[in-house]
């Protein structure tokens, strides 16, 4: 008799446990306000990407098309993946001194792991991480970017 009772009560508690789970599932099914799924390409306008998100490396340019990079190559040496290639040209200033200036700041997005160590290493704080993330292109070559804008100059450190 006792065994029979235990048998039926175990069946009953089994159904009860299934019912508990199903009730929770149905609760969320009938409460559309609790849905958290976002429809990505449709919600691009309202999408919130935090400012700190590491999307890509950019060279900071100000409104006069001037950047702060002195071509010291610290970032290139720090980068663990060889993502950065910096070429410089030597220019003669008016008073006859030789000076290295930045020619090309080449950034290979396809090889970057977004570790932000180049940002840490830069003594001039000339580069930063930007929160853009839609990087897909049709050709791999397009991922190799030149970061200094055409015609940009080194920011003059001397105050006039």
């Amino acid at each position: 008799m006792k065994a029979l009772f235990r048998y039926f009560s175990s069946i009953f508690s089994a159904f009860k446990s299934l019912w508990t789970g199903m009730r929770l599932t149905f609760y969320y099914l009938s409460h559309p306000k609790t849905i958290l799924t976002q429809q990505y390409p449709e919600n691009r306008k309202t999408l919130y990407i935090p400012e700190a998100f590491k999307g890509e490396v950019v060279l900071i340019h100000d409104e006069n098309n001037e950047h702060g990079c002195t071509a010291c190559r610290m970032c290139e040496m720090t980068c663990p993946n060889g993502t950065i290639k910096i070429t410089s040209i030597t220019e003669e200033t008016e008073d006859g001194k030789k000076k290295k200036i930045l020619d090309e700041w080449i950034y290979n997005l396809g090889m970057c792991t977004f570790c932000a160590q180049c940002i840490e290493a830069c003594p001039q704080n000339a580069i930063k991480m930007q929160n853009t993330f839609e990087h897909s292109v049709y050709d791999r070559k397009e991922l190799i970017k030149k970061l200094n804008h055409p015609g940009s100059k080194l920011k003059s450190t001397k105050k006039i």
């Binding site: 958290l36 935090p50 700190a52 998100f53 590491k54 792991t113 977004f114 570790c115 932000a116 160590q117 991480m129």
Partner: peptide, 22 residues
């Protein structure tokens, strides 16, 4: 994923990444 997503959002704001932090 409902809870995990919130945690990853917190990470995203401070660390800048969701999975491979450094």
């Amino acid at each position: 994923f409902r809870e995990r997503e919130q945690i990853l959002e917190i990470f995203e704001e401070t660390c800048g990444t969701r999975l491979t932090m450094n």
